[in-house]
Amino acid sequence: MFSYRHAFHAGNHADVLKHTTLIALMKYLTQKDTALTVIDTHAGAGLYRLDGDYTETSGEALDGVFKLLSDPNKPPAHQERAPAATKTIATSKPKAKPPLVLAPALQDYIDLLRELNPQFAQTGVATDLKIYPGSPFIEQKFLSGRDKLKLFELHPTDFKSLSGNIEQLGVGRQVAVAREDGFEALKTFLPPPARRAMVLCDPSYEMKTDYGRVSTCMADAVKRFATGTYVVWYPLIPRPEAHDLPRKLKTLAVKAGRSWLNATLTVKSSKLTTDTEGEVVRPGLPASGMFIINPPHTLKAELQAALPQMVTLLGQDRNAGFTLEHGG
């Protein structure tokens, strides 16, 4: 149950999608004067080292945030042409492509990373990016004094790290950390006192029962507090439960008469391959999605601008792409 550690996956392509979306949500929801309650059901450790053993072992950040920060003029691997069979002579120097102007949502994501990494902010060199924020630090950054953040984490080591990391912020009672099952704990906080809430549900999905628990949890949450903003991250892998989850969430939202938005990012094929010795090579996580019930009206346009750039900068083969659906 406790084998999953997000430290191995911090800064991967799924985090780029998740945290770009989360920043856009937090920016919008914290503009109003009414207090906001933010509930993070699976908070993780809060902060991660990109130069630590976990991240360097997996190497996932190399195909995520580090790839995003690399030279935008260099075409993705799947767009590079193979060397010609015959030698050709260039008659003129190729014109350099103009710098890619990042979509505002992606720029906000990078700006937040700069704030946490002064050396990276000064140099702009990707290798100077050492600290990566999990969702709790992103959420807390946008809160005002009237807002509250509730964090839940069951993993004993991550809970200890989360508690220590949050304590360093010196935010007192604004942020509460509990070692509880976030699926169950959510029920006790809905509806919130000020009638405004955002819930991020981001389990590890290491147990396939998590998919069912997410849909059940969201159905219960919408019944308790229909106007809350509910945010679900999910992996897109060759498993029926993974593809059923967004369909169930859409059905839930439609039946409840709530608006919804579903964004997915695919960076590579999900097909199994074999190495030179004939051993099966699993592709790792090829795609993920963000499903939001009661999204801000501005979110669709922000993601419409950001998602194609994520595909361009993070895509690994010809299967790279995105989808963006909404309704209600």
Rank of each mutant, 00 (worst) to 15 (best):
residue 64 G to P: 01
residue 129 L to Y: 01
residue 310 M to E: 09
residue 19 H to G: 07
residue 14 A to L: 04
residue 25 L to D: 03
residue 157 T to P: 09
residue 290 M to Y: 07
residue 258 R to D: 02
residue 245 L to Q: 05
residue 233 W to G: 05
residue 30 T to S: 10
residue 174 Q to K: 13
residue 177 V to K: 07
residue 196 R to F: 10
residue 268 K to E: 08
residue 58 S to C: 09
residue 121 A to W: 06
residue 89 I to Y: 13
residue 12 N to E: 06
residue 236 L to E: 07
residue 259 S to E: 12
residue 91 T to K: 12
residue 275 D to E: 10
residue 105 A to P: 00
residue 86 T to I: 10
residue 130 K to S: 11
residue 274 T to G: 03
residue 136 P to N: 04
residue 279 E to H: 15
residue 211 Y to I: 08
residue 94 P to T: 06
residue 61 A to Q: 07
residue 62 L to S: 13
residue 270 S to A: 15
residue 10 A to N: 12
residue 290 M to D: 00
residue 18 K to W: 03
residue 170 G to F: 08
residue 16 V to S: 06
residue 39 I to F: 06
residue 240 P to E: 08
residue 292 I to T: 04
residue 324 L to T: 03
residue 313 L to N: 06
residue 22 L to W: 14
residue 136 P to K: 10
residue 27 K to F: 01
residue 166 I to W: 05
residue 92 S to F: 13
residue 39 I to V: 13
residue 205 Y to K: 01
residue 198 M to R: 10
residue 209 T to R: 09
residue 220 D to Q: 13
residue 291 F to V: 14
residue 34 T to R: 14
residue 135 S to V: 09
residue 51 D to L: 05
residue 293 I to K: 00
residue 179 R to L: 00
residue 245 L to Y: 05
residue 101 V to T: 15
residue 70 S to L: 00
residue 21 T to Y: 03
residue 282 R to F: 11
residue 123 T to A: 04
residue 83 P to E: 12
residue 214 V to N: 08
residue 326 H to D: 13
residue 325 E to H: 13
residue 10 A to E: 09
residue 192 P to R: 07
residue 76 P to Y: 02
residue 117 N to Y: 02
residue 30 T to A: 00
residue 306 A to E: 09
residue 303 L to E: 06
residue 100 L to T: 12
residue 320 A to T: 04
residue 58 S to H: 04
residue 177 V to S: 01
residue 150 K to D: 03
residue 142 F to A: 09
residue 115 E to R: 15
residue 85 A to F: 12
residue 231 V to T: 06
residue 147 D to W: 09
residue 195 R to Q: 14
residue 138 I to F: 08
residue 26 M to H: 02
residue 273 T to C: 02
residue 243 H to F: 12
residue 283 P to K: 13
residue 139 E to T: 12
residue 105 A to L: 05
residue 299 L to D: 07
residue 41 T to V: 05
residue 269 S to M: 06
residue 290 M to A: 07
residue 158 D to L: 01
residue 315 G to Y: 11
residue 41 T to E: 06
residue 265 L to K: 03
residue 68 L to T: 10
residue 149 L to S: 08
residue 295 P to Q: 06
residue 286 P to I: 07
residue 36 L to Q: 12
residue 258 R to Y: 07
residue 4 Y to F: 14
residue 79 Q to R: 15
residue 22 L to H: 10
residue 233 W to C: 05
